[in-house]
Measured scan of single mutants.
Amino acid sequence: LRLEVKLGQGCFGEVWMGTWNGTTRVAIKTLKPGTMSPEAFLQEAQVMKKLRHEKLVQLYAVVSEEPIYIVTEYMSKGSLLDFLKGETGKYLRLPQLVDMAAQIASGMAYVERMNYVHRDLRAANILVGENLVCKVADFGLARLIEDNEYTARQGAKFPIKWTAPEAALYGRFTIKSDVWSFGILLTELTTKGRVPYPGMVNREVLDQVERGYRMPCPPECPESLHDLMCQCWRKEPEERPTFEYLQAFL
């Protein structure tokens, strides 16, 4: 395994491009020591290896001592969030954005069929390849993070704006909380990567959403798509659509 080009840095580690087995181009995620327990990670990795779908980033291998390494397929255009905010983002029109959403829903419909939960679905965790191919990455890892700023769910590192209220408040993460996050991801797509709930801080978002506030229809977004977002944001988790439905609708 060779680490060649550093692609990015996040709160919990770095991402590199490299070569595996001398020939395969891969992405390598390294986790800061202390982010998660190697034992817990190894268990999760076994499950992650079983998830194989064309719209999920394929896991190739893991190094399960500290520092933990995760070796996955390489996606040339990086994260969907950076892609939307970058040069190419300007030229993306609604049909392409909807197609990308459908690809993500397709990957998540598979996660749904496998009775698995992602827990951290957002544009930053979707990767883009050639020809606007989108794949879901980092599934299941969020559960293992041991950082206090994260586990408190009120901490600075927790993605509260993407998280369903029952998950943020009571830790009830299910495929239905993933559906909520998918609704937020749809706003990221239609606004080219704007942060959700602009002008609001995490605490406010939690309070307002509890009181029934939902983001309005983004500019140039059809009402039918906003309606779909609002279905994803129904207060009762069981009233939210399935990913199978979302995939078919898109």
Rank of each mutant, 00 (worst) to 15 (best):
residue 218 P to K: 04
residue 246 L to C: 08
residue 247 Q to D: 08
residue 86 G to W: 11
residue 138 D to G: 02
residue 58 Q to T: 15
residue 181 S to Y: 02
residue 80 L to M: 10
residue 23 T to I: 12
residue 9 Q to M: 09
residue 106 S to F: 14
residue 32 K to G: 03
residue 144 L to I: 08
residue 73 E to L: 05
residue 22 G to R: 11
residue 42 L to W: 10
residue 127 L to A: 04
residue 154 Q to T: 08
residue 42 L to D: 04
residue 219 P to Y: 14
residue 242 T to A: 12
residue 211 R to D: 09
residue 46 Q to G: 12
residue 226 H to L: 05
residue 173 F to I: 06
residue 75 M to F: 08
residue 153 R to T: 09
residue 39 E to A: 12
residue 80 L to T: 11
residue 219 P to R: 12
residue 25 R to F: 11
residue 52 R to Y: 09
residue 148 N to A: 05
residue 168 A to C: 07
residue 162 W to R: 02
residue 227 D to R: 14
residue 29 K to S: 01
residue 29 K to F: 02
residue 179 V to G: 09
residue 202 N to L: 05
residue 146 E to I: 10
residue 33 P to V: 09
residue 217 C to M: 08
residue 242 T to V: 14
residue 184 I to S: 03
residue 24 T to I: 13
residue 195 V to S: 14
residue 94 L to G: 06
residue 95 P to C: 07
residue 46 Q to F: 08
residue 231 Q to K: 12
residue 118 H to M: 02
residue 12 F to E: 00
residue 146 E to Q: 08
residue 11 C to V: 02
residue 111 V to T: 06
residue 135 K to H: 14
residue 176 K to C: 10
residue 128 V to N: 03
residue 246 L to R: 01
residue 184 I to P: 00
residue 106 S to Q: 10
residue 158 F to M: 04
residue 119 R to I: 06
residue 14 E to T: 15
residue 58 Q to G: 09
residue 140 G to P: 01
residue 81 L to D: 15
residue 146 E to P: 10
residue 32 K to F: 01
residue 45 A to C: 05
residue 180 W to F: 11
residue 1 L to V: 15
residue 110 Y to R: 05
residue 39 E to R: 13
residue 195 V to A: 12
residue 208 Q to D: 08
residue 98 V to E: 06
residue 84 L to T: 07
residue 125 N to H: 00
residue 42 L to K: 04
residue 250 L to F: 10
residue 4 E to N: 14
residue 43 Q to M: 13
residue 243 F to V: 15
residue 30 T to F: 15
residue 76 S to N: 10
residue 6 K to Y: 15
residue 88 T to M: 13
residue 101 A to E: 04
residue 5 V to P: 15
residue 194 R to P: 00
residue 30 T to L: 14
residue 47 V to K: 00
residue 180 W to M: 02
residue 215 M to P: 08
residue 233 W to I: 01
residue 142 A to L: 02
residue 237 P to E: 11
residue 43 Q to P: 02
residue 18 G to P: 02
residue 81 L to Q: 11
residue 49 K to H: 03
residue 57 V to C: 10
residue 21 N to C: 13
residue 218 P to W: 06
residue 203 R to E: 04
residue 94 L to S: 06
residue 135 K to S: 13
residue 212 G to L: 05
residue 157 K to R: 09
residue 157 K to A: 07
residue 86 G to C: 12
residue 184 I to V: 12
residue 155 G to Y: 06
residue 15 V to Y: 01
residue 32 K to H: 02
residue 14 E to M: 15
residue 18 G to N: 03
residue 48 M to G: 05
residue 141 L to P: 00
residue 243 F to W: 15
residue 143 R to Y: 02
residue 74 Y to N: 13
residue 118 H to C: 02
residue 188 E to P: 00
residue 244 E to M: 14
residue 70 I to V: 06
residue 243 F to N: 11
residue 246 L to P: 02
residue 115 N to E: 05
residue 125 N to I: 02
residue 31 L to W: 00
residue 215 M to R: 01
residue 216 P to E: 09
residue 217 C to E: 08
residue 118 H to V: 00
residue 140 G to H: 02
residue 117 V to S: 03
residue 141 L to A: 02
residue 191 T to Y: 14
residue 28 I to H: 01
residue 151 T to D: 05
residue 212 G to C: 06
residue 179 V to Y: 14
residue 143 R to C: 02
